[in-house]
């Protein structure tokens, strides 16, 4: 990795300016668990690295306006240590915590997971199902965008030159809400998802689903928010029939590829299975969360 330049600004605006000035090969650095691997393997050309971890807003978890603000470079391990976040968004936290090993958790961030734009990124389906947004800083100032709008294809984002994600916002949580994320990997740890499924739902007092969002990973070029799958749950108590409809809707939405990690056929089937199982877990959590 020769010809690498490195700076660690403390202000978001400095970072944006440096990224813009650095040109096409300038990169924000959060945990580096994708970036360093890609630089080393030669998949990314060397250039300017802008470390975000010394920007105070980019690190840590804050409760604001009933929701949560997560600094872009906050490592997964910090998410798992935050009790309130875990109670409100267990699915988001478990998704982020599935990324890599304990060591990777010491570094890897959700924003990095998002901006790396892998279709198999684990935290993204959970964030999309959670209707999370992100605050983006760029040379022109700040803007907010839904998490689901960041990745536009494998390895490609909608971020403009100089832009980076500063924060991820999780919305306020109504009572009787629950979320869950499941993925399929051949091992038990240390694998990239063959399929991932995030489900986020809210119940009324009778246990009927009033709102549901289902997002799938690794079954299309970007994470899919499957409206039909969510709709299959709404108005039900996530009973067998609803789950079957959900399963079918999830499968119908899949547009995967066959690669070294899985076949089209297998991925499609598993998307249904995982969506169903995640919905059951999310439903159970929602029932418990008064």
């Amino acid at each position: 990795m020769s010809h690498v330049e490195f700076i660690a600004p403390t202000k978001p605006e400095q970072a944006a300016a440096a990224l813009l000035a650095g040109g096409a090969h300038a990169r924000p650095l959060s945990g580096g668990t994708d970036l360093l691997v890609q630089l080393r393997s030669g998949r990314l050309p060397p250039g300017l690295i802008v470390d975000l971890k010394r920007i105070p807003e980019a690190i840590g978890i804050r409760q604001e306006g009933g929701g949560f603000v997560i600094g872009a470079a906050t490592p997964g391990a910090a998410l798992s240590e935050h009790r309130a976040l875990g109670l409100a968004w267990p699915g988001v936290v478990e998704a982020a915590n599935l990324i890599g090993s304990t060591q990777v958790q010491g570094r890897a961030s959700m924003a990095g997971n998002l901006c790396n734009a892998s279709p198999a990124a684990d935290s993204v389906p959970a964030l999309v199902a959670a209707r999370a947004t992100c605050v983006i800083v760029g040379p022109g100032g700040r803007r907010t965008a839904p998490v689901g709008s960041i990745a536009i294809g494998p390895g490609r984002t909608s971020l403009a030159p100089g832009e980076f994600v500063l924060e991820i916002h999780l919305p306020p949580r109504p009572a009787r809400s629950g979320d869950a994320y499941l993925r399929l990997i051949p091992r038990t740890e240390m694998d990239i998802a063959v399929v991932g499924a995030g489900v986020n739902l809210t119940l009324d007092g009778d246990g009927v689903v009033t709102e549901a969002h289902v997002a799938l990973g690794a079954v299309a070029p970007t994470v899919l928010l499957v409206a039909d799958a969510g709709a299959a749950l709404i108005g039900t108590k996530a009973d067998e029939a609803a789950l079957a409809a959900l399963d079918a809707a999830a499968r119908a939405a899949c547009n995967p590829i066959s690669d070294k990690r899985g076949t089209i056929e297998y991925r499609t089937k598993i998307a249904g299975v995982l969506a169903r199982r995640a919905a059951t877990i999310a439903y159970g959590r929602a029932e418990k969360r008064a």
Binding site: P186, R187, T188, E189, M190, D191, I192, K260, R261
Partner: peptide
């Protein structure tokens, strides 16, 4: 070779 690394060449890990 498509999987010349320990992420995709999957040797057993402790939890397996």
């Amino acid at each position: 070779m498509e999987n010349p690394g320990f992420l995709d060449y999957r040797v057993p890990v402790a939890s397996d």
